[in-house]
Write a protein that binds this DNA or RNA. Structure first.
Length: 275
DNA sequence: CACGAGACCTGTTCGC
DNA sequence: TGCGAACAGGTCTCGT
């Protein structure tokens, strides 16, 4: 389900609360329950419980598409993959239609990791570095300059769409925002990364930042039953719009498959030869 | 190194 | 209406 803006929205919801969802930070953990064993990547359910009970989440943040819970002496990472969601509330039964892992707090609140497709994962680690070192830079980070981005693009010989989805290249961009950014930057999804000149590289980085920021502002995209509450789907330029006219030039938006992912683009605006 | 295919999974939507 | 196929916000692994 979620890409950077959706994960950011969820991590803020956990940190600050949102709507009828109270914040989870600072609450004493009284129990944990693992309903689908594969959801907990590490450690064992028994060790997970032992290490969490009596502790509390100090802070919630995000790195790439990972939700990062700081437990002071350890970190709990959560990755929602395609259909994971976090539900916080007071209830006797685990929340959500497909609860896989639940954390109970002493004050009666619970946080449920619900996940229809069972792809999502949770880790409890002393040091999240082992996972973070595999991730590329944060697209919204100041340290990623257009020059550095350009260097990274040219150092690879990949289709640009595929490269944007590679979390080791850039952390947080997924299928929706990759297509949206490529359209905004007027770059064909099959264009070869090493053929992008510094001007195109900079415009692509700015486009990525623009769509991600807009995504965060609108609480992410809600395109089906999986993730609700977002509004970015009402701002899509190309994603899911096969057969509809491009709002820039009027040409009909097309769908192709790139790296086994549905890819939407405008053949007129993004007409630079795939190289 | 880059790419495609297959796995991992279930739920919804599409096409006949 | 019904039923199977296609498709879905992600990532890993294997073979070429």
């Amino acid at each position: 389900m979620p890409e950077l803006p959706e994960v950011e929205t969820i991590s803020r919801m956990m940190q600050f609360g949102a709507g009828d969802s109270p914040p989870v930070i600072g609450r004493l953990i009284s129990d944990t329950k693992v309903l689908w064993h594969k959801t907990l990547a590490q450690p064992s359910p028994q060790m997970f419980r032992k290490r969490l009970v009596g502790r509390s989440i100090k802070e919630v943040g995000r790195r790439g598409k990972y939700i990062v819970c700081d437990l002071t002496h350890s970190f709990m990472l959560m990755h929602l993959r395609m259909s994971g969601e976090i539900l916080v509330g007071e209830a006797a039964e685990p929340l959500g239609s497909h609860p896989r892992l639940v954390i109970y707090f002493e004050d009666g609140l619970q946080m449920s990791f619900s996940d229809a497709r069972k792809f999502g994962r949770v880790w409890l680690l002393d040091d999240p570095g082992s996972i973070f070192t595999k991730l590329g830079p944060e697209p919204l980070g100041d340290d990623l300059t257009p020059q550095e981005f350009s260097r990274r693009l040219v150092s690879k010989k990949r289709r640009i769409k595929t490269l944007l989805l590679d979390q080791a290249f850039l952390a947080g961009v997924g299928n929706i925002y990759a297509d949206e950014a490529l359209h905004l930057a007027k770059i064909h999804p099959l264009f070869s990364s090493h053929e992008l000149n510094p001007i195109q590289a900079e415009s692509l980085l700015l486009a990525i930042r623009e769509v991600l920021k807009k995504g965060i502002e609108t609480n992410g995209a809600s395109i089906d039953w999986v993730y609700r509450g977002g509004d970015y789907q009402n701002h899509f330029r190309v994603y899911g719009r096969v057969g509809e006219p491009c709002e820039v030039c009027g040409m009909t938006i097309e769908r192709i498959v790139v790296g086994q992912r549905g890819t939407y683009f405008c053949p007129h605006c993004q007409s630079n030869p795939p190289g």
